[in-house]
């Protein structure tokens, strides 16, 4: 059976909890020789330094070796080689393929071409499961659980794939979502229908101020990008209304944490960075453990083996 990770949307509650459990173990002991003798390929058909470094660090710290490319300009895909042929070729060399592609559905297709497990590191605007996994792990770590949380999604809810994936992955845990976005970037209808079908409570508002976010457990900020607007007047009008600054956090609950998939532009003022509610840099760090969990899971390395691991270095 191919154990590829293309999306987290269809995972069971138990499987998500299991992957969180694995992430915890990898946070406890990050450096191991568990993957000694394994080769991990990182194929980045679209550059993404942050995601690639996180995956490569995850594999390196488990003792795997890494092959791959960071920029498709130096590969044969510029000569017109199909994705099919590239994947077939790399399958001869690697035990797991981490791939990022600018086309949607590329990872799913790759997983149908080869028996080598694929980990989707982002396919166009479609899915980015390792980001979702680190978001879930960050929420779990900061709140102690995933159940019954009030999660506020702020900014670009139309094109932001991270918020869509998070919404779907949280469906098992009885969340209440609050969508805060300008009209041009509001949550698409299909996701509101999804919430209704899954009995997920949600509220929508355009206002973003200290009273609106006072009940939040998680404040998930996203980039409002200029190029998403058809009407630039509208962009100029709303761009500063979704800016989080320190004084807006006065009424926040003590357990509230601010997440952001990074890179941020100007949606979180730097005066928030030193606020104890800020969590976005730790969140990125959690990506390392979440990705170690995903790599081991697709290689069929289970919790028992990780708990009884005698290759731990630190």
């Amino acid at each position: 059976m191919n154990r590829s990770v293309i999306t987290l949307a269809n995972l069971s509650k138990e499987k998500i909890q299991y992957l969180i459990r694995l992430s915890e173990e990898f946070e406890r002991h990050t450096n191991r020789r568990l993957l000694e003798g394994k080769v991990v390929a990182t194929l980045f058909f679209e550059p993404s330094t942050r995601t690639r470094l996180s995956f490569e660090t995850a594999a390196n710290r488990l003792g795997a070796r890494i092959i791959g490319f960071t920029d498709p300009k130096v590969t044969s895909s510029t000569k017109g080689e199909t994705l099919h042929d590239t994947i077939k070729m790399v399958s001869n060399y690697a035990d797991v393929i981490v791939m990022r592609h600018f086309l949607e559905g590329a990872a799913q297709y790759a997983s149908e071409i080869t028996d080598v497990p694929i980990i989707n590191a982002g396919d166009g605007s479609n899915q980015h499961p390792s980001q979702t996994m680190l978001d879930l792990y960050s929420i779990y770590k900061t709140q102690g659980h995933l159940d019954n949380l009030h999660i506020y999604l702020v900014g670009d809810l139309k094109y932001g794939r991270t918020v869509h994936s998070l919404l779907m992955a949280m469906r098992h845990f009885n969340p209440t979502f609050h969508f805060i976005a300008p009209k041009e970037l509001e949550m698409p209808e299909e996701y509101k229908i999804y919430c209704e079908e899954q009995n997920i409570k949600y509220f929508e508002t355009r206002d973003f101020n200290e009273d609106v976010i006072a009940d939040a457990d998680i404040l998930y900020m996203t980039r409002v990008q200029r190029e998403r607007f058809t009407d630039l007047m509208e962009y100029e009008r709303v761009k500063d209304s979704y800016l989080l600054c320190n004084q807006m956090l006065r009424k926040a609950k003590s357990n509230m944490k601010i997440l952001h998939p990074l890179p941020r532009l100007n949606e979180i003022n730097i005066d928030v960075d030193s606020n104890p509610h800020a969590y976005y840099f730790e969140q990125a760090h959690n990506g390392l453990f979440a990705r170690q969990a995903l790599i081991c899971d697709v290689l069929n390395i289970g919790l028992d083996q990780i708990l009884n691991d005698n290759t731990i270095i630190d």
């Binding site: 099919h84 086309l103 949607e104 799913q108 297709y109 605007s125």
Partner: peptide
């Protein structure tokens, strides 16, 4: 209908 779908960019 999605021009950025892999099916519109690979012989498949």
């Amino acid at each position: 209908p999605n021009p950025k779908c892999i099916t519109n960019n690979e012989p498949m």
